[in-house]
Design a protein around this nucleic acid. Sequence first.
DNA 1: TGACAATATATCCGTAACGGACATATATTC
DNA 2: GAATATATGTCCGTTACGGATATATTGTCA
Lengths: 114, 114
Amino acid sequence: MSERLTPHAPLTPAVLAILLSLAEDEKHGYAIMKDAVKPEFGGITLGPGTLYGTIDRLLRDRMIEETGTTDNERRRYYRLTSQGLKTVSAEIARLNAAVAQGRALGLIQPKGAR
Amino acid sequence: MSERLTPHAPLTPAVLAILLSLAEDEKHGYAIMKDAVKPEFGGITLGPGTLYGTIDRLLRDRMIEETGTTDNERRRYYRLTSQGLKTVSAEIARLNAAVAQGRALGLIQPKGAR
DNA sequence: TGACAATATATCCGTAACGGACATATATTC
DNA sequence: GAATATATGTCCGTTACGGATATATTGTCA
């Protein structure tokens, strides 16, 4: 047995960007791609291969699902599943620990600093 | 042309763990492996294949270098290069933005909260 | 003292992910 | 009407991951 609670242990940057984007709201692929380049979502460039390939994997692993609705026949909207939400949350918490360590080591400016 | 300033754009979890561990102090491979499972360094399990394979790549890309010194003939010590330091710092800053976004979305508890 | 776990590094190799190239079609803008 | 943006999709070479396996030493414990 042993259904893994988080089959994706450390998320790849592409997976994180997509899940984080969908944590904000339901979105379609192209909108996710636009989000990904923004610093808040990781600032990465998602080529179509990575974007749709990763979406397919996330659908397969039930991290995201199609909403079924659309405002434009060309768009396919996706939303996080509860599993997906758990997974991003765990990943953000994990990254938070690493960032805290980086801050402690002086790799980045402390919060309030100028 | 085009020497990339940061050949490793978003770092893989394994690379981040290794660089973050070495940002603290010079270490040998096995010590890095022990560090990696700690939450502060990402909490990931580095198998020997990933560990030494990644170390070789980081040496090749001049992110880390051997110190040459050792306190035990079996141990090979590594340290960050200035390039490696820049790279981890940039990565921590990048992740910090994502963590801030995750926090804003309520994925993790805000700092002061109990 | 014999066995087992931990230390320490190294290679091999199958699987998975990445990411650029290419393709296609519509809508918009100039 | 041409170019750009929107929107999704496939293909495929390169790379990274990570478990298995190997080897040798040191430490522990019954």
